[in-house]
Design a protein around this nucleic acid. Structure first.
Lengths: 99, 99
DNA sequence: TGTAAAGTTAACTTAAAGTGGAACAAAAAT
DNA sequence: ATTTTTGTTCCACTTTAAGTTAACTTTACA
């Protein structure tokens, strides 16, 4: 088993761990990492709004277990679900930047 | 059948057509409208990258019919699909702003 | 410390996205 | 004009998110 040496950037770390960018394992990791970040955003917005998972769930017609899964990055949600939670449930405006 | 009069804003137009904000018909419309806009973004980025639907599809391991449906707002795609297309397929960076 | 509230996880069903193929329509090239 | 390229739509099938319930864990707090 190889021991990593001279890793200077996070990108190199990811390459060491999951392979080059573009490979399926690497892409899969990056997608999961992003799903997790979305969950973190939702969790933090929910806390700002002073809502429990159950209260938020009720606002969008869902169950608390669903919110939990999303906040913990365990769901690859649809765009409509993102809107439902952030805009309808938490009253935020979402903007998608492409650059 | 009621004929609309004195509609001054787009919001009023939507209310006239789909009901008040928050009602299911209205929410449904807004979600569809957004899926459509995402499609427009993807289509425009694809054109900037000088790719056909088929070429883009091949890059992300999909078929052109799939790209077509997304570009025409006929799919409520998952976040991973958004990333696959814009980042992996078109080399763009996506940022989600919440405000 | 006990207990109530909040959050997590697993197992399952249902609904819908993802997928491929083929047939069709539209646009571009020759 | 017609052939080729590009894009759209439909259908059938597979996969997976969404949704539900219930049991469990963690956190708050009396």
């Amino acid at each position: 088993m190889k021991v990593s040496t001279n890793i200077t950037t996070f990108d190199e770390h990811l390459t060491e761990r999951y392979g080059e960018r573009g490979t399926s394992k690497r892409t899969e990791f990056e997608i999961k990492a992003k799903a997790f970040l979305i969950g973190e955003v939702i969790k933090s917005e929910r806390h700002l709004a002073n809502l429990t998972q159950e209260q938020l769930a009720e606002k969008i017609g869902a169950k608390k277990s669903f919110i939990s899964r999303i906040e913990n990055g365990k769901a690859d949600i649809q765009l409509s679900t993102l809107y439902r939670i952030l805009e309808f449930g938490l009253g935020r405006k979402i903007e998608l930047l492409v650059h």
